[in-house]
Design a protein around this nucleic acid. Structure first.
Length: 769
DNA sequence: AGCACGCTATTTTTT
DNA sequence: ATAGCGTGCT
């Protein structure tokens, strides 16, 4: 188990029970160290499974840890507390819901649920949505909770804040009434209960002798305070290990405090920081570029990555005249890599902001190359899935007004905005839930409301004791959801997603660890024992219904962030979402002043330092090849911007870089001239100058004729009426053929996607026999 | 109740 | 450019 560890890794794995801070560089085998440490502790009998608490940020990281652990150890990982901050809080609060003052079987609001709950509060308080923008209010509330502040704790200095606090309080009351908690509440409740309940806190402190926190640089104030509840500085008989990389701290905007690392070192009196600087991922030039860049940051804990892998290829830099040309270039380069043997899935196109993906997507799309975009809606966030879940939540808890409002008139059943308003008024004055107040609405609408409640009540009765699968199938059929989408012209995909929901439930039920590690059912929580007579919950050990457990799972784990897998596809994502991933070849695009570093980060030095760390993260994703590109012009917000190359190019050691821009392209194009003129006018280098001429044809949207590149291509071999196969659209029939050679294009009618114009030189069309 | 038009915002995101 | 959202109209 300990073989093949380098000296630093070995030291980290076999640390004695002292507080430790492990500075784990990118690609230094961090996860391996964490899991090996736990395995080693267990195997040497220093701790039993029940004594381990390991926290991560993402479900993915938690899962990976569990998977690796169970492959290293024969024993089940059952008793260990390994999970995300929120997952573990959930587990804790399910066991101690009564002490925490929560409803039994409380449900969890995801951020969109939270947003609609906040909207409801603002409307109910008759406040102006212009002055109290729901999104910002939500952000305020989440922000306060992350700082550990209840409404009474907020520092009120102006009228606006006073009102915001009032909204916060009202929102809180509403959540209480409806038996729901948001993500911040999971953390804060857990923290408060441990803080205020001495026996309970002592119980958990005694129980967890080994506490490990992953990605410590991403923790916020509350999470650090939370950690101290489980394992305080100077705690006796406890080992606390924080693992992190200050150079990869890229989430300050959502409350992460890199400073927690330095604070941890000081407050826990960490005797020696262990640095994992041996990198097992990238070639030398790539690491040199990363090291050189990040050395420009101040206040670092200090770390230099090294490798035995050799220098490898230099980092290639490409300057283009337009975002369009940039896309075209990297597409060709990616094709070349692919032809040379790199799988497409090992090629990543990274960008600073999502808006940049469009131009890349269009280019890939028109060229017929398979690609996959990360980000966007996750499975459990899809509207139709949320609708189905809302019905299921109402089965569990009829007083969940958020869910009630979501589906009361979906599918439409003659309940309009006016009657809902009446209903809400009635509920507000009586302090009851919407479902309890339907009697207060007169007339036809009132009858419709009562019918809706009867529908849900009937479903609840009819699904009592059924398997999860049957419950969902009943919900989908009896609520009319499936019927609704059947008549909808775009409904086919949605029906498929609903079927997928049934599958998700099915695999959730059969999955190993259902309701226990995965969901956080209180299995081994007996609370404090006799020593803490005041603390134990009578309900401890109670089994959640599969339905409730599945709903929790759906909120806590929104599902895959990536589009459907299947074929070998080029990966597109923001630099943020690339964190933690690695690829053979990485293209970082749009490295321009104003974009990367982003203009909104330029106002303060901290902002630029975070952008630099972001660039550092991006660079260190690459194993073998790294490409950096920027463009003189870029279409953004409907206007052409004239950009200059990022300052980061001057901060990366020049001898790691190889500029590969063809001379005439960089300096000879019409664009470059225009750009220089703009520069001479002094009218906004790096800013908006005005709409420029586009030297390449405008992008074809997927439905419009495909752009024909001037590249050489083979158009022959197709005829009208022929059936062809396209990687993206599937099978189709050629209805028109136009042009010859490189300009040849075909109109193809696809079953699912309708009629498309495709450039034969670019699109991959294969004849079907 | 549903659609159309017009307004606005537009870094990064997990749970 | 454009997507998402709210208002107002039919």
């Amino acid at each position: 188990m300990l073989r093949n560890l380098n000296p630093e890794q070995l030291a980290a794995v076999t640390l004695p029970a002292v507080p430790a801070l492990i500075l784990a560089g990118a690609g230094s085998g961090k996860t391996r160290v964490l899991t090996t440490r736990i395995a080693w502790l267990l195997q040497t009998g220093q701790v039993g499974p029940g004594g381990v608490l390991a926290v991560t940020f993402t479900n993915k990281a938690a899962k990976e840890m569990l998977t690796r652990l169970s492959s290293m150890l024969p024993v089940a990982v059952r008793g260990m507390w390994i999970g995300t901050f929120h997952g573990l809080c959930n587990r804790f609060l399910r066991a101690h819901w009564k002490l925490a003052g929560l409803a039994q079987g409380f449900q969890i609001l995801d951020s969109s649920d939270q947003l609609s709950a906040v909207k409801r509060v603002i409307k109910g308080m008759n406040l102006d949505e212009e002055r109290f923008v729901p999104k910002q209010v939500t952000w305020f509330i989440a922000g306060r909770k992350e700082e550990g502040e209840r409404p009474k704790d907020v520092d009120v200095r102006d009228e606006q804040t006073r009102k915001l606090v009032e909204i916060y309080q009202t929102y809180q009351d509403q959540c209480e009434r409806e038996g729901v908690v948001d993500f911040g509440e999971l953390m804060l409740r857990t923290y408060e209960l441990l803080r205020d309940n001495d026996p309970l806190r002592e119980h958990y402190r005694r129980r967890f002798s080994h506490v490990l926190v992953d990605e410590f640089q991403d923790t916020n104030k509350l999470q650090y305070a939370w950690l101290k509840m489980f394992a305080p500085p100077g705690g006796v008989g406890q080992s606390v290990i924080a693992v992190g990389d200050d150079d990869q701290s890229i989430y300050a905007f959502r409350g992460a405090r890199v400073g927690n690392m330095a604070d941890f070192e000081r407050e826990y009196r960490v005797p020696a920081v262990i640095k994992l600087e041996q990198n097992y991922r990238s070639y030398g030039h790539i690491l040199d570029a990363a090291n050189g860049l990040i050395s420009r940051n101040t206040h670092r804990l200090g770390k230099v990555l090294r490798t035995d892998a050799g220098a490898g290829e230099p980092v290639r830099v490409f300057e283009s005249t337009s975002d369009y040309a940039e896309a075209q270039w990297l597409l060709e380069e990616a094709q070349a890599l692919h032809r040379a043997g790199t799988p497409r899935s090992e090629i990543a196109l990274l960008y600073r902001s999502n808006a940049q993906s469009r131009v890349l997507e269009s280019a890939l799309f028109n060229a017929g190359l398979p690609y996959r975009v990360y980000g966007g809606l996750r499975f459990f966030e899809r509207a139709e899935v949320k609708h189905a879940l809302a019905y299921m939540r109402l089965l569990e808890n009829p007083h969940d007004d958020t869910s009630f409002l979501r589906v009361v008139n979906f599918p439409a059943r003659g309940i309009g905005a006016r009657s809902i308003e009446l209903l809400q008024d009635a509920a507000r004055t009586s302090g009851r839930s919407l479902a309890q107040s339907v009697g207060a609405v007169p007339g036809k609408a009132g009858a419709n409301l009562q019918a809706f409640v009867a529908l849900v009540d009937g479903l609840r009765a009819a699904t009592q004791g059924l398997t999860l699968r049957l419950i969902i199938e009943q919900v989908l059929a009896k609520t009319g959801l499936v019927d609704f989408y059947k008549t909808d012209k775009e409904g086919q995909d949605r029906i498929e997603n609903l079927e997928e929901l049934v599958n998700a439930a099915e695999s959730f039920v059969t999955q190993e660890g259902f309701g226990k590690d995965a969901v956080g059912l209180p299995v081994d929580e007996h609370g404090p024992d006799a020593t803490a007579a005041a603390a134990p919950d009578a309900d401890t050990g109670e089994i959640m219904s599969p339905l409730a457990a599945f709903l929790t799972h759906a909120s806590l784990e929104a599902g895959d962030n990536q589009a459907k897998t299947g074929q070998d596809a080029i990966q597109l994502m923001t630099v943020h979402s690339a964190k933690g991933l690695e690829f053979d070849a990485v293209f970082i695009t749009g490295i321009e002043e104003g974009l990367f570093p982003h203009e909104q980060s330029l106002s303060d030095a901290d902002g630029v330092e975070e952008e630099r760390r972001l660039m550092y993260v991006a660079i260190t994703r690459a194993r073998k090849r790294l490409y950096l590109s920027f463009s003189q012009t870029r279409m953004l917000h409907g206007q052409t911007r004239y950009n200059v190359k990022s300052r980061f190019f001057d901060e990366i050691p020049a001898d790691t870089l190889k500029w590969i821009t063809p001379r005439q392209q960089a300096f000879g194009s019409g664009y470059a001239r225009e750009y220089q003129q703009a520069w001479q006018r002094g009218s906004g280098l790096g800013g908006i100058v005005g709409a420029g001429r586009v030297d390449a044809p405008a992008f074809a949207q997927p439905a419009a004729p495909a752009f024909v590149a001037a590249a050489a291509g083979q158009a022959a071999g197709f005829r009208v009426g022929q059936t062809v196969f396209h990687t993206k659209f599937g099978e189709g029939v050629i209805s028109t053929l136009e042009g010859r050679g490189a300009d040849a294009r075909a109109q193809v009618t696809f079953g699912r996607h309708g009629s498309k114009w495709l450039a034969l030189a670019i699109a991959k069309l294969t004849p079907v026999d």
